[in-house]
Amino acid sequence: MNKTPSEAQSFANLLVNELVGIKSFDIYVAPPFTALDRVREVISSSNIKLAAQNMYYEDSGAFTGEVSAKMLKDLNVEAVIIGHSERRKIFGETDELINKKIKKALNEGLTPIFCIGETLEERQKGLTFCVVEKQVREGFYGLSREEAIKVVIAYEPVWAIGTGVVATPWQAQEVHAFLRKLLSEMYDTEVAQKIRILYGGSVTPENWFGLFVQKDIDGALVGGASLKESFIELARIMERVISK
């Protein structure tokens, strides 16, 4: 919940100018619902794609305050973040609800950016793999092989979000490798390799290189750093690594 429509529009202009020409990876911005239309106008002819921060699984009805997939599609939104830890913790979203949202997003042609991750207490108790496995299995419940490939997973250890604490490259890679193995068991090796798995959790230009060079980390779900010019630095780091 950052940036007014005017602020988001101004920042989108900056991003378009600074990130022009990058084609080696996908760049998405996910402004608040109130800024989607203005940002869409700015990025419409650029290499930057539009995402939303959330959506509901019904098309319409008595769901005051909610936004549907069809509403997002009409704004040329291409992806939507689903199950972010803040939605789970603050707004009580369950794995069952998140699964419904993922299925609806896929049915409407939106790319779900499906967030998973453990709390500090769960990590300290050695439950990390149990927690993320349950989240993945329930989030992917009922998805065909073809549908599963279209999902983007974002591993965001809750203890590293907005805290300034970041998982070490080894900690992040360990979980990402576990997720690949899990997906290969649920589907097959091809699906596991095709699904993009992002890391999210206090990503900054200072720590991003060590994370991005890990074998199973395909990109980042950027939080606070996406609100300022450090987002541009992160993209340039990715571009340099990929080019080499």
Rank of each mutant, 00 (worst) to 15 (best):
I22P: 13
E147M: 12
S230R: 10
I90V: 15
E122V: 06
Q214E: 15
A160E: 09
S46A: 09
P5K: 03
V42I: 14
Q53M: 02
R38P: 00
A154Q: 06
A148H: 09
G210V: 03
V67Q: 11
I116P: 11
V222Q: 08
K181D: 12
L106S: 07
K150I: 02
E206S: 14
I113D: 11
V191G: 02
E58F: 13
Q53Y: 01
L50V: 05
I232D: 11
I27M: 07
K100T: 04
N13D: 02
A177G: 07
K215T: 11
A51R: 06
T94D: 10
V39Y: 02
V39N: 07
G117N: 06
S243C: 11
K194C: 05
T111R: 15
N107L: 11
A8H: 00
I81N: 08
I98M: 14
S144T: 15
A220W: 03
S68I: 00
L97A: 08
V67F: 05
I161M: 10
V131I: 15
D26L: 07
Y57G: 02
R123K: 15
L227W: 00
A79C: 12
K134D: 12
I153W: 01
L211I: 03
S46E: 05
V80P: 08
R137G: 02
I81H: 10
K181R: 08
E118S: 12
I195Q: 11
C130L: 12
L36D: 04
S68V: 01
P5L: 01
Q171D: 13
E206F: 07
V29N: 04
V29D: 02
E7N: 04
